[in-house]
Simulated scan of single mutants.
Amino acid sequence: MTQTPRLVATDLDGTLVGQDRTVSRRTAEVLRRLDAAGVLIVLVTGRPIRWLHPVYDQLPVAPIAICANGAATYDPGTDSIVHSTPIEPGTLAEVCERLRAKIPGVVFAVERDGGRQMRHEAEFPVGPWEVNHHSVGPVSYAELLTRPAAKLLVRAGVQQSDEFTALVGECLEGLAEATHSSSSGMVEVSAAGVTKASALARVAREQAVTAHEVIAFGDMPNDLPMLAWAGRGIAMANGHPAVLAAAHDITAETNDGDGVAVYLEQLYRY
């Protein structure tokens, strides 16, 4: 990349957002200046829509968000999903049956409507912040498969994330995409061909921006397709080893050290 990027795409957790789930004032100010200068900003995250608003509340701008690893593109200005590519019920059923046949003790949850709702099997462990949440609740296995899902979430007890993701991906080859965004042992499954890169490419195309004019930041394996597609793919200093190895460059600071903001300040000479 020899020119200043026209579009800045950034992951949230582990990248733009600190470990305390906050966006620093420094980071918020850099995004404000980019927006004022006409640079397009796109949030690109594995988060469901229901987890986006705490981030928007901390930002001086309200950029479009690609969420659920590319399955839904969300416009906060209209509170609407402008594009969606979910796993359809028939495919969802085949995915789950393949995994149940291969992996002992596997349990599932689904993100619906871009993640406005989550439904899960009773045995699926739900984070304490979502217990008794109005948009989250248990259903039967049969009910889980009745509607399109932005993402299928897969667990099977205590697992090593990289190895478990590889196993799930092998089971679903040609049928769906498998990735992960944490070290918790949970695998995230999307429709075939749906990644952060596929959704970002569509948004860029709609804005007449080429891949060469995009800079993207990320830290985990679910960011790899996006970092490879962008003209400049930047790994966070705290990134997963595979991300550090694949990126064009690495931030000098971690997410807790405002790594994205520091990089952009230097790039745009703020």
Score class of each variant (00 low, 15 high):
G105N: 10
Y141E: 12
E177S: 05
T91Q: 08
V126R: 02
V82C: 15
P5D: 08
D223Y: 02
A72E: 01
R21V: 14
M118C: 10
V194L: 06
V168T: 05
P86M: 04
T195C: 06
E130Y: 11
M186W: 06
H212L: 15
C171G: 05
A246Y: 06
W129T: 14
D249V: 01
T85V: 12
T73D: 09
L152C: 09
L31E: 02
D79F: 08
V95L: 12
L267M: 13
P63M: 10
K151A: 03
T146A: 15
R32Y: 07
G218C: 06
D113P: 00
P148N: 08
I215W: 00
M226V: 04
A246Q: 07
V187E: 01
H120Q: 12
V8C: 03
G18K: 01
H133Q: 13
G114V: 01
R205N: 15
L7Q: 01
R98W: 14
Y56P: 02
S161Q: 09
E29Y: 10
G127Q: 14
H240F: 12
D162P: 07
T179V: 11
A192L: 14
V139N: 04
P138F: 03
N222M: 09
R147L: 12
G14A: 12
A201P: 02
A192R: 13
A246T: 07
S198I: 02
A156G: 11
L175T: 06
G90H: 14
R205C: 15
A230N: 04
E97I: 11
S135F: 11
I81A: 04
T15D: 07
T73R: 03
L99V: 12
R26D: 12
V61Y: 09
A197M: 06
A201F: 06
P128S: 15
D57A: 15
L244S: 05
L175R: 05
L224F: 10
K196S: 03
V189C: 08
V126G: 04
